[in-house]
Write a protein that binds this DNA or RNA. Structure first.
Length: 185
DNA sequence: AAAGTGATCATG
DNA sequence: ATGATCACTTTG
C-alpha cells in the first residue's frame, strides 16, 4: 500500500493541498467495507498568521487539534449541521490544515463527510496509524486549477486573495452537474 | 434569496 | 447567560 506517512504530512498546507489532488481518501466502515474516493478539491489554511485559519485567534478548545502536527484529522461542525474534514499538516505546534472540499461524486465539504460517514468522533485521529481513515497516493499527472478560498469573507483581504484552493480540472462533472456553469475555460 | 441548525467564542 | 458568527446545503 502507498499510504501517506508522517513525513508526507509534515509539508506545509499549501504544498500538501496541491499534492492531495488525485490522491485517495479511504474510510473503513466495517469489516467488509472500505470506501475509497479520489480527492478533487482542497483548501489550505496556514497558521496563526493566516486570518482565515481557525487558529488565527490562537489556541482554543476547538483549535487544539490543529497543533498536534501533520497527519491528524481535524473535524468540526459548521453551521450547526455540516461536519468538515481537514488534514492537519506541518510541524507540531504550528497550526495548519488542508480542508477536503471535494471527492469524486461529491462536491462540497459537507457532502464529502456525509458520503464517507465522517463526523467529530474522528477528530484528532492519527491518519498514519488509523484503521478507520487514511490517505493513499494517487495519480501524479493532473491539471490543477488554483483559486482563492471559499467562504472566508471574515478574513483580511490579503488572506482572501491567496490562491490556496486547488481543483482537479479534469473532474468536470460532480453529481451530474457541471461545476463551471459559465463554460469558460 | 433565505432558512435552517447548533457549537463555539467573546462579552458581561 | 446571551448573542453573533460561521471552511455550508437545500429549497423556493
Amino acid at each position: 500500500m502507498s499510504g501517506f506517512s508522517k513525513e508526507d504530512y509534515s509539508k506545509d498546507a499549501p504544498t500538501l493541498g496541491r499534492e492531495l489532488i488525485g490522491c485517495f481518501l479511504c474510510r473503513r466502515i466495517d469489516n467488509e467495507t472500505i470506501l475509497r474516493f479520489r480527492i478533487t478539491e482542497t483548501e489550505a489554511y496556514y497558521g496563526e498568521e493566516d486570518s482565515a485559519c481557525h487558529a488565527s485567534k490562537g489556541r482554543t478548545k476547538r483549535t487544539e487539534t490543529l497543533y498536534l502536527g501533520g497527519g491528524h484529522a481535524y473535524v468540526y461542525l459548521c453551521y450547526g449541521m455540516h461536519e468538515m474534514f481537514n488534514i492537519v499538516t506541518g510541524p507540531a505546534e504550528h497550526p495548519e490544515a488542508v480542508l477536503i472540499r471535494g471527492i469524486e461524486g461529491a462536491a462540497g465539504p459537507g457532502r464529502v463527510t456525509k458520503k464517507l460517514f465522517i463526523d467529530r468522533s474522528l477528530n484528532a485521529e492519527d491518519l498514519t496509524t488509523s484503521g478507520r481513515i487514511w490517505v493513499e497516493r494517487g495519480d501524479t499527472v493532473r491539471k490543477i486549477e488554483t483559486t482563492p478560498r471559499i467562504g472566508i469573507a471574515y478574513a483580511k483581504i490579503r488572506d482572501q486573495k491567496r490562491k490556496w484552493r486547488f481543483v482537479d480540472r479534469d473532474a468536470d462533472l460532480i453529481d451530474g452537474k457541471a461545476r463551471r456553469p459559465k463554460g469558460k475555460n
